[in-house]
Design a binder for these strands. Sequence first.
DNA 1: GTTTATAGACAGAGAGACTGTCTTATGCAA
DNA 2: TTGCATAAGACAGTCTCTCTGTCTATAAAC
Lengths: 150, 150
Amino acid sequence: MTDIHPVDGARLAQLCRAIYDKLREEIYLAAAQEGFVDLRPSHSNVLRHLDAAGSRIVDLAVRADMTKQSMAYLTDALAKLDYVEIRPDPTDGRAKLVVLTPRGHDAIAALTRLSLAAEARIATHLGQAKLDAVRDGLAEIRAALEEPRQ
Amino acid sequence: MTDIHPVDGARLAQLCRAIYDKLREEIYLAAAQEGFVDLRPSHSNVLRHLDAAGSRIVDLAVRADMTKQSMAYLTDALAKLDYVEIRPDPTDGRAKLVVLTPRGHDAIAALTRLSLAAEARIATHLGQAKLDAVRDGLAEIRAALEEPRQ
DNA sequence: GTTTATAGACAGAGAGACTGTCTTATGCAA
DNA sequence: TTGCATAAGACAGTCTCTCTGTCTATAAAC
């Protein structure tokens, strides 16, 4: 009988998925142990895109490539958890600004630190140079995928 | 004001996530255009792990790292869409075997072909050697992440 | 000043994961 | 052989996160 999965396991998409899943699990588990028990991976869709001065929901939605309704759901959840504050935009009566609370700043700092720690652990296996090379290659791949297909 | 995101954008996890999301979108969009309109990314959690001779739900669940209830939901959905057939296991009255239908075989073949095509497109940007090096590095990283943390 | 565009809110739906419980079948041991 | 622990899966319910569609209020443009 022929093999069902001729080239599986070595596919770029599967590798990226597996690595992302592992890192996400590791980072959010560690964050929970530091006290951020209510922080969920989906929340990083907000935190990653916040400006220091605060951002509008619609801008966050565009950056995260999701609908403004979905982004509103996430920002509302983060507001209830005291990671962000939502206040009216003084320059536009329709808009609101999502701004980080001190706890939100702490969360971003922790997530950043834990991400770096995870990479440092990987570097002990591969060596820093190789890890850097992979990361540079991934950045190139991401850029290549941004381009429209002909 | 200090920068909120000191090292963002170059993080391994974010790169893997972005690339996986793009590839997944691209591959499943192309698959839909080939007639697999009802195939969803979550279904690959089943298809990726199926044995040629058929697999039990509980085994698929372990391989996909999810509960058997969740896996049963997915295999049931795939059965309704005629990608798999669920039949009793002749060797164990409690168990059922999930086996691919011809349409399921076609779907796996298409997904495999489209994945390779996406990587070939990337190779035109990076060169095959660089892409291979990145893939090898990712495989090493995945292996490193499998090891328990000390 | 009227029309159009924009920001967000509200309601509802659906996918995909989870936990908990239950039934049935297997297999081993008393 | 009976009786119990184990295992496979089914059933019910919940939760998170995303979507579409519609609506209000404000801003901007003509």
